[in-house]
Structure formats: structure tokens, C-alpha cells
Simulated scan of single mutants.
Amino acid sequence: MKSQLTTSLSMQTPINKNAIPYMTTNKLKSLYMKWTIVLFMLLSLNCLAQKPTIYGIGDSTMANKVKPEENPERGWGQLFPMFLTDNIKFDNRAVNGRSTRSFINEKFWESVYKSLKKGDYVFIQFGHNDQKEKDSTRYTNPHTAYRHNLIRFINETREKGATPILFSSICRRNFNENGVLIPTHGDYTLETRLVAQEYNVPFIDMEYYTELLEQKYGPEKSKKIHLHFAAGEIPYYKNEKHEDDTHLSVEGATAIAKIAAEELKKTKLDLVQYIKK
């Protein structure tokens, strides 16, 4: 009996001690691969669903204005979204009265920098307040501090995989007695052009195109694109307002936002696909 049992056992297929662990490892590998593929697909779908963002940084000529239902003033960045498709966001971080210096020192740039992600864009337009020679918190030398602040915006934007775009300042309505439009930005717009060339940054010459706009309207009619109102003409201004040739009316901001959109279309940026035809 014992001999028969021994013979029977010896005839059975030997047990492979590594079989169960081997099969388990294979199954685990297969399961791991499947979950990796699923996770990759989910992440890819999330990336596709996440819209790129354009951040606008600059001064009051670009900034959003409070109480738009009452206030006739607009920044061109406030109206720029009307020229964009729904597949991109415009986050206007421009702030009234800021220069490159104060925008950095007051942590506005830090906030934008932390929000930036790959595929985003940053519209950069400063100069009006960098000229404030009597204000140490805002003034910058165009060839030193202003220049290096622009370079910082460019480099840090690129660090995040985003694309910087430089805009020269829009011109002021500054016609002389002969109807000639006189520039007021000195070397700031020149330095913006030079930085754009040196660092291979897309450049939109807003000063030039807004000069054409002012000249098209002429010395008198160009008041319509700025803030010129008689006392009591609109409730928002209690007193007359006839000396603001820097800031923009709805008509002016719309026209300048359109200029920005049309000029961006001429670039080779992927951004073009997000601008309405």
C-alpha cells in the first residue's frame, strides 16, 4: 500500500514552487500597465480640457475699470476678450497707475507668475507710469531699470513654458497748435522695441498704430476716444472733464483692442487660432 502511494505520488506532475508567484507578478504587471494607460488618458483629457490663459499686465490704459455700468472709462484689455474665441481665457491683471517697478514691488507680478502654466501668454505693456520722475516708487530709467524689468517679465514667463508678448505704450492725444501729433513716451517705447529684438519676443507696435488712429480722428474728433465730458453730461463726472487725453472711452478702448487683435493675427503664434476671424 505504501509502495503504491509512493508510486502514485511520484507519477504526478511536480509542483513548481515559483508558478503562483510568477503568475501573480504577471497579473500585477498587466494590471499596473492598464492603470498607467488609464491614468495617462485621464491626464491627457484634463490637459486638453484646460484652456490656455492670456494674462494682461500693464497700467490703466489696459486695466479693467470699476462700475462699467456707470463709468465711461475702459482699458483696452477690458474689451479685448470680445475678439477671442471661447477656447481661451483672458485674465486682465493690469492695474491703474502701475509702472514696471511698482507692479513688481507690490507683488502683482508674483501673483501672475505663480498662476502661469505651459501654453499661456503674457501681454506686457508699461511705460506711462515709468515716466513719473517725481515718484520714486514708480519711476524707472528707460535704459536700465525699465529695460531690466521687461527682461525679467520675459525670462520668468518663459520659465513657466508660457509666451511673452511685448506691446509698446499707446500714444496720448497730444496735438500741437498745427494739428501735429507729438509723442510723449520718450525712450520707453524705443527700449521696448530693442528688448523685443534682442530677446526674440513678439512685438506689437501699439504706439504706431494708435498714432494712426488718433490722426484718423483728428485733433477735435479724437476727443471721442478719450474722456472729454462737459459738466453734468454724464452722472459719473460731476465736474467737466476735458483734460484726460491718456485714458480711453468705450469707443477708444474698443478700437485699440481691435488693433491689438488684428496685429496679433499677423504673427506666427499659436495664439492666432484663438482670435476671431
Rank of each mutant, 00 (worst) to 15 (best):
F40K: 10
I88H: 12
P183Q: 09
D187M: 08
L79S: 06
P21S: 00
K241F: 01
K266Y: 01
T246Y: 03
K223F: 07
E191T: 12
T254V: 13
W35T: 08
K268T: 07
W109R: 12
R173N: 06
N16C: 01
S3P: 05
R173W: 05
V201N: 03
Y208L: 14
E211V: 13
C171Q: 15
L212G: 00
H148R: 04
E70W: 10
T100K: 13
Y146T: 00
E207C: 00
G127C: 04
K221H: 10
G161Q: 03
L48I: 15
W35D: 15
T85V: 00
P81H: 01
T140D: 11
A196D: 09
C47Y: 15
I15N: 06
K89V: 14
P142E: 09
I88G: 09
Q4P: 10
N64M: 10
E262M: 03
Y208T: 14
W76K: 07
Q125K: 01
L264G: 01
S249G: 07
T163F: 02
E70D: 12
T7Q: 15
E106G: 00
D244A: 13
S44C: 11
Y237R: 00
I182D: 02
L43A: 11
G252W: 06
P235Q: 10
L271A: 04
I88K: 07
I259A: 06
T192K: 12
K117D: 10
F126C: 06
T184F: 00
E243R: 12
N129V: 11
F167Y: 05
L39G: 05
Y55E: 07
V112R: 08
F83Y: 05
P183A: 08
D86W: 11
Y113G: 04
K27H: 15
T36D: 12
G58Q: 02
Q215K: 15
I234F: 08
P219F: 05
K107C: 04
M23H: 02
G179T: 04
F229A: 07
Y237T: 10
A145E: 12
P219R: 08
I54D: 00
D270V: 03
G119E: 03
T210C: 09
W35H: 05
M82P: 08
K276M: 13
V122L: 06
A261H: 00
V180R: 03
T140F: 02
N174Q: 00
Y22W: 10
P68Q: 07
F83R: 00
G218F: 08
L42R: 14
Y113L: 00
P72F: 11
S115V: 07
N174D: 07
T13G: 10
E207A: 01
L48V: 13
T163N: 00
K268R: 15
M41Y: 04
I20G: 12
F40T: 14
K276Q: 14
G232L: 00
Y32T: 12
V112A: 08
T192N: 12
Q197F: 15
K132Q: 09
H148V: 07
I124S: 01
T85I: 02
P81E: 03
A196F: 04
G232P: 02
G58H: 06
A145N: 05
A162V: 01
S99A: 09
E177S: 15
F80I: 09
K67W: 11
P142V: 14
Q78E: 15
N178Q: 13
K266E: 01
L271F: 11
I20E: 14
T184Q: 09
K238R: 00
T267V: 10
L271R: 09
K89M: 02
Y209S: 04
T7P: 12
D130F: 05
E207I: 04
A230T: 03
K134P: 13
